[in-house]
Nucleic acid binder design. Sequence first.
DNA 1: TTCAGATTTGCAAACGCTTACATTTTTCTT
DNA 2: AAGAAAAATGTAAGCGTTTGCAAATCTGAA
Lengths: 326, 326
Amino acid sequence: MEEVAKVAGVSVATVSRALRTPDAVSPKLRTRIEEVSQRLGYAPNRIAGSLAGARSPLIGVIVPSLTNSFFAGTLDQMTTLFEASGYQLMIGQHGYDTDREERIVAAFASWNPSALIVTGRRHARGTLATLSAAACPVVEMWDHGERPLDSGIGFSNRAAGELAARYFVEQGLIRTAFVGATLDKDDRARARAEGFKDTFRGLTGLEPLILPAGSRELGEGGAALKRVIARQPEIQAIAFSGDMLAVGAMFEADRMGLSIPGELKILGYGDLEIARHTNPRLTTIRPPHKEIGEAVVRHVLERLKTPDTPSVNLDLGVKLILRETV
Amino acid sequence: MEEVAKVAGVSVATVSRALRTPDAVSPKLRTRIEEVSQRLGYAPNRIAGSLAGARSPLIGVIVPSLTNSFFAGTLDQMTTLFEASGYQLMIGQHGYDTDREERIVAAFASWNPSALIVTGRRHARGTLATLSAAACPVVEMWDHGERPLDSGIGFSNRAAGELAARYFVEQGLIRTAFVGATLDKDDRARARAEGFKDTFRGLTGLEPLILPAGSRELGEGGAALKRVIARQPEIQAIAFSGDMLAVGAMFEADRMGLSIPGELKILGYGDLEIARHTNPRLTTIRPPHKEIGEAVVRHVLERLKTPDTPSVNLDLGVKLILRETV
DNA sequence: TTCAGATTTGCAAACGCTTACATTTTTCTT
DNA sequence: AAGAAAAATGTAAGCGTTTGCAAATCTGAA
């Protein structure tokens, strides 16, 4: 920058202004400085800029897993949109481990980020402390509930479970099950399971089977199907906490010669691309993946531009996508 | 830090040393400083640290897409492993757009990262300039070829295509096709297509059908299957540039009443989880997803620890996973 | 006990920008 | 044309660390 200033015959302050707040510099100088820094291939040092300025153009995002299609989709949206506004994403994953989340949040906070975005509403004590102390907007996404730390953008997982139960009851289904991946660690999956159970019980007085699955992968779906049938041979319908589990169960049912939806109904969750292509096509509950990413970016950008913008707490809702398996 | 220094009754220099190079401080002071900074909840400002030190503990990784399972898997590995060594990942995606890649590389370089990791071997002129000028290790991953910019860790996509062709020929398959996603933009898919075509032609003197697909998603696989059959009704075997396309084709074949592998053989690429669960299970070519991530991290960490470590250019190879569709 | 050498600590100068404030130049009003 | 107000530019003080070098302290041999 010093170099550019010298060549352009101005002070570094003017160069800085020409580059960051062009309006504050006379058109003549501005063009000269732009031309020179172009010619010299000058690239500002973001680190120095961040240290001098109040905060860095970094945005920390923490998700449970990068390989989970839901979060991958949200991150996809966010990198693209934030990048366009000149922000860089720092992405961290904790694998549903709250201690690891705490360490990542602390690490991210020490970069003076412009915003911190975490997944879910349950955090370790230290995470809460760090987030509350952070001098930037904090968004808890993918979940809706009362009193977010700062802003919350997501939907009610409980409502998603309720929706599944209500739909089963409407269809006259009596012997049902909910299969959820890692219910012990994944709060959101657990909330769906509980919404399902409570609603089904409330509506019918009957007890649905609630079964955990070891992972959210296809293979577990097939295995879970077998376990459900072993426990309840007369099962009529199963709701899964993820489309991949549901598809795995469909493959397994195919192998077992069990016809879907004839002998068994299957309901997914996620509305992944694959749900549109299976035979038969998978009926599923669609969380607002993309909408969450968009809403988070829009809100954060707004907060950053107009600092007195109030926090929000949005429930983006879920939708039942009727296809052929229920 | 000043605060900690005052409370512990030492200078900030000593605090810095106690925290970063504990061996350079007497045990007595070290424990006192650690205790105080613990008590005060001191978190060092990474930005200031990076400005003062030679470079930042940031590692830039650029992939074509976050939602592509291959790269998601590699990133998964890398975030976890680098995080454990105190590095943060900055992740960028360019959607196979070289201009966008250029902008991202430039943006990342301005953070004085400890390493820069890009996908593939073809880059815009400006990207090459930035990467060559970067004062840090540069790794080009997911592809193997001669003369990487600095280090290269991947495998030969051409060899993957050759493997597919050779296997088809060994099986006595004559009327074959290769369906590739976005062959115009994805160099790696194109290299596989060319390896397939050249080898098949060389071995049999026959011309395989090479067809582009609009995307790498399931639906396109089904659509491509129909197009292949329209062009060549007697088709015996199709190699796909991705497992998802292959699975989409299997679903479509199912709908068409076409038996696999009886009437049509299908070969995938990727060895995604789903390949193990379809009916019949998908024969596929496995690129070394995980191995790439691990090798990149190992190499970069080595380079960072011992700066005079030489660059590498590794070919990790591909493997044919025999299952039931060919 | 003394003193050289090793170890520990402190001082102060970067690191490369941003920005409040002061100064200079330009523009406008009368 | 003079003076006030507005706009443009420069000066310099940070931002919170790290680190080379000097000073102080400690260690052990003579």
